[in-house]
């Protein structure tokens, strides 16, 4: 038996006795609140630190540096105050505000659910995206046979399709495919470092959901762009506005996309990433910010910023 030291006398430092450096130490404070129709249902504060050395992570729910704890906690509380004001203006929704301040990053997101449809958005965009979600829910649907028409991916929703087909494939080290020459896909860290995902580069940022988790190379902000892409709006088409979720199966390279709001109602796409690469037939304009992707991998959920131009795919169902 090893490691039977009582918790109260346990040292937070790595076993070799050296003090952790800024590169070894990760500290995090998180505040989150869930409001349902204007009533506070859940409120959490969570904090801790992790020290990593020689492949071992020692984590605890204490931040040794009281100044760092106060700074991170104050930043979270101030921001949660701002988020709360936004939430009060959404009395008909289920809204979760999550503010995370770490030694590496600061993030504030608001997840809004109306009529069973959710978006996740940075707090700066929450009010506008709440209005957008309401307008999406007013869209009427028509009947059409699935898989028979090209799809127009509006409002940046193609970012979700390509998050799965390009982003996760790159994270898994899968060989690059022949994507259209006009397509660009890069992931940007908050400090501006960029990875060309189409070329198969790994995202530059190492991210983790909490101090308890193992950090991994994960996307931070996916930006899809087009350069001189062809674009002709098909007369007969389906229009995708909002995506409920997606998945990439690394063993088969199959992408699954659950469309929440389209002009033919909700539906599911299941296709290989190669089929998706072949399906891209046009795009137009600058990238449009998509209201949010929560990306789950190895049971760690992270917010990933996402934007894409209007993109047209041939039928891929």
């Amino acid at each position: 038996m090893v490691d039977r030291t009582p918790l109260a006398v346990r040292r937070p430092d790595p076993a070799d006795g050296q003090r952790p450096t800024a590169n070894d130490l990760f500290a995090m404070v998180r505040r989150d609140e869930l409001w349902v129709r204007g009533v506070l249902e859940e409120s959490r504060i969570n904090y801790g630190q992790a020290v990593e050395r020689s492949g071992e992570i020692i984590a605890r729910n204490r931040i040794d540096d009281p100044t760092a704890l106060a700074r991170l906690r104050d930043a979270c509380e101030e921001e949660m105050g701002r988020v709360r004001k936004l939430i009060r203006a959404m009395p008909d929704a289920r809204v979760r505000g999550v503010v995370t301040a770490t030694s590496e990053d600061f993030e504030s997101t608001v997840a809004i659910t109306l009529d069973g449809v959710s978006i996740v958005t940075p707090h700066q965009s929450a009010s506008a995206d709440y209005d957008r979600l309401k307008s999406f829910l007013q869209l009427s649907t028509r009947h059409s046979a699935l898989g028979t028409l090209p799809m127009v991916w509006r409002n940046g929703s193609a970012a979700v399709l390509l998050h799965e087909a390009i982003g996760h494939a790159a994270e898994h080290g899968h060989a690059p495919l022949a994507w259209p020459g006009w397509l660009r896909a890069r992931d940007e860290t908050r400090d501006g470092r960029s990875a060309d995902l189409i070329a198969g580069e790994l995202p530059r940022a190492t991210r983790r959901e909490s101090f308890r988790d193992v950090p991994m190379r994960r996307m931070t902000n996916l930006i899809i762009e087009q350069a001189n892409a062809p674009f002709a709006l098909p007369e007969e088409r389906m229009e995708v506005h909002l995506v409920a979720g997606g998945a990439y199966e690394p063993l088969t390279e199959i992408v699954t996309i659950n469309v929440a709001i389209s002009d033919i109602g909700p539906f599911t796409i299941r296709a290989s990433r190669a089929a998706i690469a072949r399906s891209l037939i046009g795009a137009t304009g600058d990238p449009l910010r998509y209201p949010g992707v929560i990306c789950s991998r190895e049971a760690q959920e992270l917010y990933v910023g996402s934007s894409a131009p209007v993109i047209i795919t041939s039928e891929i169902l």
């Binding site: 490691d3 918790l7 346990r10 009533v39 506070l40 249902e41 859940e42 409120s43 959490r44 504060i45 969570n46 904090y47 801790g48 492949g55 071992e56 992570i57 020692i58 984590a59 605890r60 729910n61 204490r62 308890r212 193992v214 190895e298």
Partner: peptide, 25 residues
């Protein structure tokens, strides 16, 4: 977890009344 060893020491409390569930370390 994979090749890494992770040691976590953690404690926290949850309070719940009729409307609100609150947690803190």
């Amino acid at each position: 977890e994979g090749s890494r060893l992770v040691r976590v020491d953690e404690a926290g409390e949850a309070m719940e009344n009729r409307t609100t569930f609150r947690t803190q370390p």
